[in-house]
Write a protein that binds this DNA or RNA. Structure first.
Lengths: 209, 209
DNA sequence: GCCATTACGCTACGACTCGTAGCGAAAGCT
DNA sequence: AGCTTTCGCTACGAGTCGTAGCGTAATGGC
């Protein structure tokens, strides 16, 4: 979250945790109904049943609030072992696609990403609370695949890190682009084709089913 | 553009083409300096040297204006024949990355994409004026590769169309995610790695340089 | 050359949102 | 108790929005 664990402050009336949850839920609700540009903090405060001033005391502005509200959606991402690298990839991609299919995630995330091009602190907030969580799944999937012998163990750790970043950009980027720009659902069929392309490459993909 | 070629109207004072160009240029300039959320139509009008009412007579709102302003940036996309599929891909990806690296493209595009999740007409406007232009390059590149024997000729036209869509989502999505979310430039080294992954797949990529 | 038509610049306007300040009351700690 | 911090509420100036109204400019048709 934002400034959790005051650490140096222990006295006085504590902040209401229910208010936090209510505000974030109200933000997602407003994102669905109003979209990002027409979302007003006054409306969010009313929906949450708190005063507008309370909202401003906790978040610096709309951007930070939306990041926190959307970040909670990614808590549910897990990577159960499905037995093969292909199955693991398909599983996590489908989960990611399911989250992105929710209107509050789509409009909220893209909007704050757009804002983050002019706000480094915001970009870092997105990275730590949304992106980093997903990247761990990539690392976990690779580790499993190496254990199964599907991928060779990395030799150069720096090259391995670059590869993970690359894969992550490809996977997340493709799902986002498919869902938001192309405007089609990243459904089972699409994910199967995508996984085949990612594993086998363009030659293998078109070479045979 | 928006409502070009009135067709049914030929009399009266014609709209100034200079004003159109000035407004779109001013929009890009304001995008760079203010970002999307702090961009106001009044400011754009002032920069362009036109009245605010003129702006509202031509565009329905901020979203449509920004789409048109950003779309012009993609006019420069071309696909010279570089001799091989890999080289063609690297070339077009680098061009796309160069456009996205410009702040007006990054903040503007992402913002309108975010808005388009709640506005079908806006999504269609983006698709026709930005996306479709890029997709033709993919078709052209595939055709050339088939002529060289690097890719087999498609048998099922429907499957071929799906593959083109898939490739397009992967390429564009990866560049966008790399640039905007990860916050790193899609430079020569990254594009080389990405092309290798796209052509050879995950196995080949990690198997050896 | 005159007229109908359309675009333009300018001003002004109500409605709305923003973010903050100030206040008294509430809720915790010691 | 007393101290501290948060909360809800009200009110406020500043800024933006999108539109209406008016007089003027630039076309084409007659």
């Amino acid at each position: 979250m934002q400034s959790r664990t005051p650490a140096t402050r222990a006295s006085g009336r504590p902040r209401s945790a229910e208010a936090d949850a209510a505000i974030l839920a109200a933000t997602r609700e407003a994102l669905v109904e109003q979209g990002w540009s027409k979302l007003t903090l006054g409306d969010v405060a009313t929906r949450a049943g708190v005063a507008k001033t309370t909202l401003y005391r906790r978040w610096a502005g709309k951007n930070e609030l939306v990041v926190d509200a959307v970040a909670e959606l990614f808590d549910e991402l897990v990577l159960p072992d499905r037995g093969s690298l292909a199955a693991d990839i398909e599983g996590v991609v489908l989960q990611f696609a399911a989250i992105l299919a929710r209107p509050e995630a789509a409009s909220g995330l893209m909007a704050v990403v757009a804002e983050s091009t002019r706000d480094d602190a915001l970009r870092e907030r997105i990275r730590s609370s949304v992106v980093e969580r997903q990247k761990r799944l990539v690392l976990e999937g690779r580790s499993r695949a190496q254990g199964r012998g599907e991928l060779p163990p990395e030799t150069d750790p720096e090259e391995a890190a670059r590869t993970v970043d690359l894969i992550f950009d490809v996977v997340a980027g493709a799902v986002v682009h498919r869902t938001l720009v192309s405007g089609h659902a990243a459904d089972q069929d699409w994910v199967r084709d995508f996984t085949a392309l990612l594993l086998g490459g363009l030659g293998a993909e078109t070479r045979q089913p």
